[in-house]
Design a protein around this nucleic acid. Structure first.
Length: 437
DNA sequence: TCTGGGGTCCTAGGACCC
DNA sequence: TCTGGGGTCCTAGGACCC
């Protein structure tokens, strides 16, 4: 007995040009203009409006190399405003959660929805699109398929072919039409096929998504590995990847940054590393884990090969797994001093917390001072609450420095429109805040 | 002056053991 | 002359994703 409605249907919903679109929502004058959002330190292009794409601006291009030309063509650049994007993301995700029984938040702007059993999946996709647009001002595309990989492909079609109105269901088509679409899609547009695999596949004559789908999975496993084999199976409609409804806890937590200017002083390197490990510890406590290993690294600017280069890192096994900012800061500071070498211009440093385990089942050691641990836990919780309520960095360990002139550059940052009363958009000349006060 | 940050999974190969 | 073999664990590095 075949019952169409019981077949697995996965939708991939993603926001078009997410960061650039967030900026436009709050500054409508930007609509229709070429606009890019830059990575930290205003380094690379990480999001582009349709008009910026039309100018030929590519993802990940260093801004300083294309700035002159782009600005001459009327392109506007913004520094990335993650506070704003994270808030907009949670609004979109709340809508999606409401429109499907189960969904997986896959990234800041993408979500997989389970539409199995929905009678007209594509119509539902259009409804999702309509609601997100109305409630947030953002535009999403919806791709529907029997596996995650096919949903991704369908999403690609929805984005590239406006005649589908932003929602495309691969499975509602007859087999011949499905194949025709797959044949139009280059193999490296398939989820999981990057530049290296594309090269190897092309050498074998596998150029399109259809070519890859028609490969023998077992042969692919022989020549590549189990990951590529799963891609082929998913393309053929055999699910290998399930929806992950609950995000599993991270296995490692990293915080690293490039500096706004090079650091030559050990005291500054120490400050930077301590401020990064503080942030990492905050994330660690958020997921209620403790870390057993701390990794600290720093390096010079690889893009300046004429300058002396130095790459250093240190792994520290902690005496007990912990989530304590003060303790982690002490070790991170010592590590920074240990890897520091005079005579080098450091451009980037970072910390990683590894070998994480749930705090609840942490192994207790024989000699630990329980009272001290409890006092520290209370201190960290005050730290976290203050920083949530009054903004990141309100309370910090002194070792993280107060001047921080090495901090990243964000010269073109938009206001935190949605998360600060002071920056609510103004209507009729007066902000809500002014009326309140 | 100016080139991001944060993750995951898999594999190969070495160390070590019996 | 002739120099095992299999298992496990760990780590580094590759490849991918957004």
């Amino acid at each position: 007995m075949s019952c169409a409605s019981s077949e697995r249907r996965i939708a991939l919903v993603d926001v078009n040009n997410f960061y650039a679109s967030c900026e436009t929502v709050f500054n409508p004058k930007l609509a229709g203009r070429p606009l890019v959002v830059l990575s930290n330190n205003d380094g690379c292009v990480v999001s582009r409006s349709a008009e910026a794409k039309a100018l030929g601006i590519k993802m990940a291009q260093p801004w300083h190399l294309i700035r002159k030309q782009a600005e001459a063509e009327g392109c506007i650049a913004y520094s990335s405003n993650y506070t704003l994007y994270a808030d907009m993301s949670s609004r979109v995700m709340a809508i999606l959660a409401d429109m499907a029984p189960e969904h997986e938040v896959y990234s800041i702007d993408e979500s997989f929805l389970d539409l199995t059993g929905v009678r007209q999946p594509r119509e539902h996709g259009l409804a999702i699109r309509q609601r997100v647009r109305q409630w947030t001002g953002l535009t999403v595309c919806v791709g529907i398929g029997s596996t995650k990989t096919r949903a991704k492909l369908a999403n690609h079609v929805a984005k590239k072919h406006p005649e589908h109105a932003g929602a495309f269901d691969l499975e509602e088509l007859p087999a011949a039409e499905q194949e025709a679409w797959l044949q139009r899609i280059p193999v490296d547009e398939v989820w999981g096929i990057g530049p290296r695999l594309r090269e190897r596949l092309q050498a074998m004559g596998v150029r399109t998504a259809l070519d890859l789908q028609q490969c023998d999975p077992k042969a692919i496993r022989q020549q590549f590995n189990v990951v590529v084999e799963r891609v082929v199976e998913e393309l053929r409609g055999t699910p290998c990847l399930d929806l992950e409804l609950l995000a599993p806890p991270k296995q490692q937590i990293m915080c690293s940054r490039s500096f706004g200017r090079a650091i030559v002083d050990v005291a500054e390197l120490r400050e930077a590393v301590i401020s990064y490990v503080s942030r990492a510890a905050e994330k660690l406590r958020q997921q209620q884990s403790v870390a057993r290993v701390l990794h600290v690294f720093a390096h010079t600017n690889p893009f300046k090969p004429e300058q002396p280069q130095y790459n250093a890192s240190l792994n520290i096994k902690l005496p007990l797994a912990c989530d304590d900012t003060l303790m982690l800061s002490r070790y991170a500071g010592a590590a920074a001093e240990h890897i520091y070498r005079p005579g080098y211009a450091f451009k980037k440093a970072g910390t990683m917390l590894m070998e994480l385990e749930p705090k609840a089942t942490r192994q207790i050691t024989l000699f630990e001072d329980t009272d001290q641990l409890e006092r520290r836990a209370r201190l960290n919780s005050v730290l976290d609450r203050a920083n949530v309520r009054f903004g990141r960095g309100t309370l910090a360990v002194a070792g993280a420095g107060t001047d921080r002139s090495w901090r990243m550059n964000r010269g073109m940052l938009s206001p935190p429109y949605t998360t600060s009363l002071d920056h609510l958009p103004r209507v009729g000349g007066a902000s809500l805040n002014q009326r309140i006060t």
